[in-house]
Write a protein that binds this DNA or RNA. Structure first.
Length: 295
DNA sequence: CCGGACTCCTGGTTGC
DNA sequence: TGCAACCAGGAGTCCG
């Protein structure tokens, strides 16, 4: 599942081909990929055709391409299975392609942007850019306003995050996956960061000390940065899958999907449990729920 | 504020 | 070999 590192790899991969590109043609093969667009496909096509795109931005798992000299942006969310591919305009269109943008980039020339999405949880949409309020001049799509900054954002405020976390009466993995508290973390990197910090996924946040919360945040950053470094080097220049088809960096996972395999730290078999309708992978020895003595 | 249930969706895998 | 059931889960919404 694309999480922050995968989306960032896509964003970075799009910079040379999409910045200053003119959209010359828009094809929508499946309108369900426009579920979040406020209008019919014809509206999407009409407004996007002829638009000049600016450098792509990202917050958490959301990616957007501002439309130059306008208050709009093309918002892309990859959902569970979305991919953004840059192709030669003459290349064959793959089976699960939902939307295709033909573009011309000065210097780069003609290029085709394919939005491929098997499960159609992802989407493209045109949305209004609005000020963030806390950073002068900064704008994000309206549909992204409620998303918290991600831990790799230079304006992410550790203290604010730790304060908000401390006030939450919930469990830690639920909090990590709450994109309005901290963004960019999905199921894989939540499990990986919790493993690294030796915290059980169902640990009540009320019983999590500030020191351990700080450690967890540091591990989240490390896990994201490491995946980003690996993903960032795994795709080459031009007409490649900018989504990095490299299996989401699965070669360096310690807990996610490792059920039955020995914990890299202590050798105890990793356990998988269902939590929040998804798998949670953890070491039953290294990661135990801790409760205060008074509780 | 919190959590649970439900919805969206389909290719690949599993099980009979 | 055939086919149905099951699984993966990001995120929004509704409800108690």
């Amino acid at each position: 599942m694309p999480e922050l590192p995968e989306v960032e790899v896509v964003r970075a991969g799009l910079v040379p081909a999409a910045t200053d590109a003119v959209v010359t043609r828009v094809r929508v093969f499946d309108e369900r990929s426009l579920r979040r667009h406020p209008g019919p496909a014809e509206d999407f096509i009409h407004r996007l055709t002829g638009a000049v795109l600016a450098a792509p931005s990202r917050r958490g798992k959301y990616l957007w391409l501002p439309v130059a000299e306008s208050d709009e942006a093309l918002v892309v969310h990859l959902g569970m299975s979305g991919q953004v591919l840059l192709r030669d305009p003459d290349a064959e269109i793959a089976k699960l392609t939902r939307i295709v943008l033909d573009m011309v980039q000065p210097g780069h020339g003609p290029v085709r942007l394919d939005f491929v999405d098997q499960r159609i949880f992802g989407s493209m949409a045109l949305d209004e850019l609005v000020p963030t309020g806390d950073q002068p001049g900064e704008r994000v799509p309206r549909s992204v306003v409620h998303i918290a900054r991600d831990p790799l954002d230079p304006h992410f405020d550790d203290r604010v995050f730790l304060d908000r976390l401390a006030r939450r009466d919930t469990t830690i993995k639920r909090a990590l996956l709450d994109q309005t508290l901290v963004s960019g973390i999905g199921n894989i990197y939540a499990d990986e960061a919790l493993w690294a910090a030796r915290i059980h996924y169902d640990q009540p946040t009320r019983a999590l000390s500030r020191a351990r919360a700080r450690t967890l945040l540091a591990e989240v950053r490390m896990v994201l940065a490491k995946a980003l470094a690996e993903g960032g080097t795994s795709f080459d220049a031009q007409y490649v899958n900018v989504n990095g088809a490299s299996g989401y960096f699965s070669h360096s996972l310690n807990a996610y999907g490792q059920q039955g395999l020995p914990c890299p730290r202590c050798g105890t078999p990793i356990v998988r449990e269902v939590f929040m309708n998804r798998g949670s992978h953890f070491c039953p020895r290294c990661q135990r729920i801790r409760v205060p003595r008074s509780a």
